[in-house]
């Protein structure tokens, strides 16, 4: 199946993505969650500081907010 949409190799060779890069993606996703989504559902209530600080950003970026 992968072969079906792999263009000839000499045009674009695959890039080796290190495993650490995917850890970085996971970390980034987690950071986005804390910054934009955390409403006290998952973490301690003290994390609400982040909620209040990034309040305008949440509204501007269109994520749910109070």
């Amino acid at each position: 199946m992968a072969a079906a949409f792999t263009v000839p190799a000499h045009t674009t060779a695959p890039i080796r993505v290190p495993a650490l890069a995917w850890a970085l993606v996971l970390l980034g996703t987690l950071a986005l969650y804390v910054m934009l989504q955390e409403n006290g559902a998952l973490l301690h209530h003290s994390w609400m500081v982040a909620h209040e600080l990034f309040h305008d950003g949440r509204h501007a970026l269109g994520v749910p907010c109070h």
Partner: peptide, 10 residues
């Protein structure tokens, strides 16, 4: 300021 920071971090 937090809104601007959120945009940059995002």
């Amino acid at each position: 300021g937090g809104g601007a920071a959120a945009s940059i971090i995002y």
